[in-house]
Amino acid sequence: MIRDLKFLIVLFVIFVLAKNSLATKEYPVPYPPLTPGIFPCMNCHSDLPRNTKKRVLKDMHQDIKVENHGDRWCYDCHDERNLDKLKLANGDQIKFEDSFKLCGQCHGNVLNDWKKGIHGKRTGSWNGEKQYLLCVHCHNPHNPPFKALRPDPAPIRPDSTLLKPKHHNNEKKSH
């Protein structure tokens, strides 16, 4: 009897945990595009002292330049307490998966539209489950404007000679 009860309790706990973990996925997003080899940041940073003074980086990460995104620097968004996390303006720590909350602090209208599926790209099915893309899948957070692309080839201009039988073309040439 007690055994059965224990089993039921375990089942109940698993159910609650599973439900909670699903509920937190309000907006199902794929894994963020973190640079392989760089993340997790704490692999290096756990042993390094944290210098929170705003400065131009000289020893590492010189390739990351914050452009077209106002006067920002690392610790405005990255959490100096744990570099594998981001932080909101109010100091709340968030995961990289939830980075849309960070962007939405300033771009509230866009976040609103994104939640409704108006801004950004969604995949999945129009009458069922959808997958959202994070802001950072299209916008580099360090340089957000969408990058220009090479367009696919233009359509061929209509060419009526294509449809004529071959001997017609030959006649033309001989004249």
């Binding site: 409704k116 599926g117 790209k121 969604r122 995949t123 999945g124 129009w126 009458n127 069922g128 969408f146």
Partner: peptide
Amino acid sequence: GRYPACVEICPVGARKFGNLLDPNSEVRR
């Protein structure tokens, strides 16, 4: 229930598709 191919490929998410009779669909919004 799937999106048309042009919606699925659009790299900027400019294309939206859905049910006009569903008040919660993207197009209706």
